[in-house]
Every structure is written in structure tokens, then in C-alpha cells.
Amino acid sequence: MTGQDVALVLLGVVALGGGVLCVTTRQIVHAALWLVVAFGGLAGSYLVLTAEFVAWVQVLIYVGAVVVLLLFGIMLTRAPIGRNDGLDSENRWVALVVAVATAALLVTTVVLGFGGAHKDVKPGGGSADALGSSVFRTWVLPFEVASVLLLAALVGAIVLSRTDIGAKDGD
């Protein structure tokens, strides 16, 4: 195991732990914060994997915007702050079964597929320079489509939240 692997594993454990705590905690705001931990762990993993641009985008967007949005949502829906036992639905045991089955299946497949594969990695493939030229040359069309998608999402979110557009007459 190289140092890269060790670092990767440790950061992965951090992310996993954050994720597990996010989905099991009884305080809704804590869940958002554990989510931040998970995102942070993942950003660290990206760095170890030499994909620094993706790592900073992850921090920027996810931690910076998505979690803030989620916190706004918690606030606006008057979610119960503090310890609350009603956060898990009745479905959780079935959900546990399905999740364990998924985990078993995926892990087995991956381990069976890539058990001992080893390669040397070269740094530099994840720089902003490399990725930027790649996006604006090879992947420019999906990039444009993604921007249209963002526009659509923006418009849709605005329409959905307008209070002065009511139900149609007769409903």
C-alpha cells in the first residue's frame, strides 16, 4: 500500500463516517453538518487523486452552495430543531436490508473485478489548465447544454416558488 492509498483510505473513512452519521443522526441540522464533513472528506480524496480542480469545485459548489441551500430549506420549512425521534420513517428496516444488499453486491463486484490491480499515477492531469482546455474544446457542447439546464432549473424554481400564481380556476 502506497502512501497515496493510505491517505485515500483515511479520507474515505472520514467521508463514510460523515455520510453514515448524516443519515442516522436525530438532529436535522447536525445531518447537514455531517454532510459537510462527508463533502470535505471527498474533496480531500480528490486532492490525493491529483484532481485538484474537481476538489475545489466540490468545495465551492457542494459545501458552499448546496449545503447552504439545504440549511435554508430546513429553516423555511420550520423543521424541528433539536433532538427529534421522528426523523426515521417506518421503512428503515427494509431500507437497511436493501442498502446492505446494495453494498454487498457492489463491493463484491468491484473487489472481484479490480482486486489487485495496481498502477502508477502521474500528477498533473487534474489541473485547472488541463481541465479547462478539455472542457472548452472536447466537451464544449455538453457544457453549453449544462448551462441551458441551469437556466431551465432557475426558471422552474422561480415559477414554483411564486405565490401569486395560484391554482387554475375550477380546480
Binding site: A38, R92, V94, V98, A103, L106, V111, V121
Partner: peptide, 23 residues
């Protein structure tokens, strides 16, 4: 590097997410 470590972590994280969605 061994690819198996990030792959397994990703799989486990996915399973955790599945649990969260359903539970």
C-alpha cells in the same frame, strides 16, 4: 495506486445514500 480502495469506498458511500433515501 490500487483502484480497489476508492472504488470500494464509493460503493459503500452509495449504499449509505440508498439507506438514507429509503429510511
Amino acid at each position: 495506486m490500487h483502484i480497489v480502495y476508492p472504488a470500494v469506498i464509493s460503493a459503500l458511500l452509495f449504499a449509505v445514500g440508498v439507506y438514507g433515501v429509503l429510511a
